[in-house]
C-alpha cells in the first residue's frame, strides 16, 4: 500500500510536484502518463527516495508505504530501497557478469550463502523470462546482451532482493516492439506478487497493462482512476485531449 498526502517537491525554486495525494493498492499495476516534463519520473522517484541524491531539492507532505511515512528521520533508506525496487528507462546493468548483476542486491544486503544466491539468481532470471536465453552464459558480461535482454536483466536484478513494490520508469521506451511486448507480458505476470508502478509514454501500453492510471500535467495529478474508465470516459477534458493525441 502506497499513499501520498499533499506532496510538494521542489528542484531549487522550481515547483515540480504540486500537492499530489494518491493511494495505490497492493498487487495492482498503476500507470503514470502525461506529457514530457510533467513530473512523472520525479513523482515515481519519491517512492524510493531516489530524489535524495539530487542536491538542492525540497519536499513537503508525506509519503506512506505500508502505513509509515518514509520521509521520517528514522527511516532506513537502504532498507526502504531494498523493499521498493526500481527499473530505469535505459537498461543500466553493471559492468559485471550476468550472474553478478542479479546477485548484486543479494550481496550488498548480505542475503544468504552461496547456495542461496545461486538459487535466487536462477529464480529471478526465470521470473524475468530471461533464464532460457542466458543460462549458458551466466559468466559473460552483461553488455553482451541485447538491449531488451539487458532490460529484463535489470528487472531480474530488481526482483532478486524480493521487493514488495517495483517502480518502472518507461522500462520499454528504449526497446523494439518485440522486446516491449515481452516486458509487458512480464509486468502482467509479476502483478501477482508485487505492487507495480509504471511510467509510460505509450498510451496503448498503459491501457494494456495497468489497472489504474494517473494523468499528470505541469506537476499536478489531473486525473487518477480505473484505467478502463480513464481511457473510455475521462472526467477532464485535458485528459481526453492528451489520450486522443489532440494535446500540443
Amino acid at each position: 500500500m502506497i499513499e501520498t498526502r499533499n506532496i510538494n517537491f521542489y528542484y531549487g525554486d522550481f515547483h515540480a510536484i504540486k500537492n499530489i495525494s494518491i493511494a495505490i493498492k497492493p498487487n495492482t499495476i498503476t500507470a503514470f502518463i502525461g506529457p514530457s516534463g510533467c513530473g512523472k519520473s520525479t513523482f515515481l522517484r519519491l517512492f524510493n527516495r531516489m530524489n535524495d541524491l539530487i542536491e538542492n531539492t525540497r519536499l513537503e507532505g508525506e509519503c506512506l508505504i505500508d502505513g509509515k511515512n518514509i520521509y521520517e528521520k528514522s527511516t532506513d533508506v537502504d532498507a526502504l530501497r531494498k523493499r521498493v525496487g526500481m527499473v530505469f528507462q535505459k537498461p543500466n546493468p553493471f559492468p559485471k557478469t550476468i550472474f553478478e548483476n542479479v546477485a548484486y542486491g543479494l550481496r550488498v544486503n548480505d542475503m544468504g550463502d552461496k547456495h542461496f544466491i545461486k538459487q535466487r539468481v536462477e529464480e529471478s532470471l526465470q521470473a524475468a523470462a530471461l533464464w532460457d536465453e542466458v543460462k549458458d552464459k551466466l559468466q559473460k558480461s552483461a553488455y553482451e546482451l541485447s538491449g531488451g535482454q539487458q532490460q529484463r536483466l535489470c528487472i531480474a536484478r530488481a526482483l532478486a532482493v524480493a521487493p514488495s513494490v517495483i517502480l518502472m520508469d518507461e522500462p520499454a521506451s528504449a526497446l523494439d516492439p518485440i522486446s516491449t511486448s515481452k516486458i509487458e507480458e512480464l509486468v502482467h505476470e509479476l502483478k501477482q506478487h508485487y505492487t507495480i508502478v509504471i511510467v509510460t509514454h505509450n498510451m496503448q501500453q498503459a491501457a494494456r497493462v495497468s489497472d489504474n492510471t494517473g494523468f499528470f500535467m505541469h506537476g499536478e495529478l489531473v486525473e487518477y482512476s480505473d484505467t478502463k474508465k480513464m481511457f473510455l470516459n475521462p472526467d477532464k477534458e485535458s485528459t481526453q485531449n492528451y489520450i486522443t493525441g489532440r494535446f500540443g
Binding site: 530501497r81 526500481m86 559492468p95 544486503n109 530488481a158
Partner: peptide, 23 residues
C-alpha cells in the same frame, strides 16, 4: 545510472563506491 542502479538495490553509498564506481 550506475550509481542509481546500485542505490536502488538497497546498497549503501560505500558499497556503491567500491563495488560499482571504482571498478
Amino acid at each position: 545510472a550506475m550509481r542509481e542502479a546500485s542505490l536502488a538495490m538497497g546498497a549503501t553509498q560505500w558499497q556503491t563506491i567500491y563495488r560499482v564506481v571504482v571498478p
